[in-house]
Structure formats: C-alpha cells, structure tokens
Design a protein around this nucleic acid. Structure first.
Lengths: 150, 150
DNA sequence: TATTGTTATACTCTATAACTATA
DNA sequence: TATAGTTATAGAGTATAACAATA
C-alpha cells in the first residue's frame, strides 16, 4: 500500500465508512449506541466537563451533544450538576451506573470485531494497534477547544 | 498498545466512530456523500452488478441500497438497465459522468484527512497503510454473498 | 455584548415490514 | 412458492438557526 497521503486518505475513508456501518448495525443487542458509548468513554477518561467541552472533544456541535446527554441522563448514566461559579454552565459527570456500564461494555462489547481481529496473526494485530494509536492522536483535540464558530 | 483482540476492538471502535463523524461532516462542500462515494467505488472496482449484490458488497440492506441507487441515478452517475435474462433483476453500472466524478474525487477528496496524514512521518503513514489493507480484507465479503435472511 | 446551553427543525443514513413483479 | 426489488415507515445521528439565561 502506498504511503502517499492523498491516496491513503481515500482508501482509509472508504474502509472506515464500511467498518463503522457494520459496527453501528451490529449493536442492536447492546444497551447503548456507539455515539452514547463514545461520550461515556470520554467522560470516563477525562472526568466531568461541560456539554460544550464534551461536544468539542467528541467533534460534534453543541445541539447534537445536548441530545446525547439528554438520552444518557434519562438512562441514569450521567448526571448534570450546576457549575459552581458560572450559572450558564453545567457539569456533566458519569454516575455509578454509567461507570459500571462502561466497564461492562469494555469487557464484552464488539464481539463481531473481536472475532475478526482474533482471526488475524499477531503481527497484523500489532499493526492495527499501532495504527489506532496514531489515528487517535490525529483526531483528538486539545482539551477545552471550542467547536463554535469554526 | 495491546494486541488483545477484545481491547483492540474497543479502542478501534471508538476511534473509527470519531474519525467517520468528521469525515462525513467535513464533506459539506463535496458533490456526493461518503455513502454514495462508497457505492460508486465498488462499482468502479468490480463493475456493473445488481442492486442486491451491491447491497451485499456494501453491507447494507436492499432497501437502503435502493435509495442510494435512486439518488445516484437522479444525479446521472449510475444507470439502471434490465437484466438480459431475468426480468426481476436490474443491472446498475457507472455512467461516464459517474466514472469521471469518481476519478475526480479520488484526486481531490478528503483534504482534511490528507493534511492530517501528511503531517505524520513516513513510518506512521506506512503503519496506517498496512492497517488499512488488513482491515479492508477483514470486512470485504466474497463477491455475490446475499445479505437477505442473515 | 458575548457566551453557554437548549429548542425547533430538517436532512442523511439505515433498518424492518409489507408489497409487486417475475421465476 | 421463492426471489429481486421497491415502497412505506420509523429511528438514530447530526447539523444550522433561533432563542433564553447568565456573565
């Protein structure tokens, strides 16, 4: 495979779209969606934060995050508390149930993908692992970056 | 990064969801969506096929592919012709315009991702390239596999 | 006036169920 | 009866625009 960035971006895009389609589709039995899980993972990793910061970390617009937070609040997985000094802001944090669900999903989720990956030899798995680490750094914004007004 | 398949599947899922979100969101200026592009890429690579086969190749259900094909037909990018011997079937093929658009997009699309990848050193890019090849094989079904009745 | 968050609204993508036409 | 495709319908995910509350 070429390492020309342009061609690589094309190939990567098409592969990602197809894999993600399957990942979302095959979670019908799961308790929460990938979108919800992604938000929870960020809260588990980085701790409580405002909806605006969470939206920025997740690369979605604030209204989109409002909806995700609402669904997670309804499910009792996150809690909203007033900001101590700024009345406009809100702090979103994982509840015990949210943290428990995250741990549980981390151990049992994505069976389909797990099976596929397990069928690879260890070299290939290591290659994917390295690529994941590189890609994650590539798309993780610095903490607190606002999304508004891009 | 670990090479345990389960942990790797978890990490990979979260990274893919976030990257794909950005890929879709940043195509506002593009002429066609990633879903449409993916279908066109399959037709460009594998040639004309029935809607059912295209759905299977793309890992979507037939009604979903019906809509994608309808939008591409409206845009003049694919053409539908009757199957020569089976009146129930249809053959979907790229038009000249569709092939031209695919070539064009292959050279100019995903600028955002291209820039990010260009900022990496060559080793990292090669790692991602290797991973893409592995992942593509992992999710590409054999030609002609039906989706129905899974 | 600027910032934070929410509400209102709309579009894309995808699915399942039911229907039509052909084999 | 079985298969290929489409239509009808619904739900998730995301966006932009407009609004309310607070700084």
């Amino acid at each position: 495979m070429t390492s020309d960035p342009r061609a690589l971006a094309s190939e990567l895009s098409l592969v990602l779209v197809r894999i993600t389609r399957q990942l979302r589709g095959r979670r019908a039995d799961a308790q929460i969606s990938l979108t919800q899980l992604s938000a929870i993972a960020t809260l588990a990793r980085d701790g409580a934060m405002t909806p605006g910061n969470l939206a920025a970390r997740e690369h979605v617009q604030p209204p989109s995050m409002t909806r995700v937070i609402a669904s997670l609040t309804d499910a009792g997985l996150v809690a909203r508390t007033p900001h101590p000094t700024d009345g406009r802001q809100v702090l979103v944090s994982l509840t015990d149930a949210g943290r428990a669900l995250f741990e549980e999903e981390s151990n049992a989720r994505e069976e389909w993908m797990t099976e596929r990956l397990a069928s690879l030899n260890e070299d290939d798995r290591n290659t994917i692992g390295d690529a994941v680490a590189i890609l994650r750094d590539l798309v993780t914004p610095p903490s607190g970056t606002p999304t508004r007004g891009r």
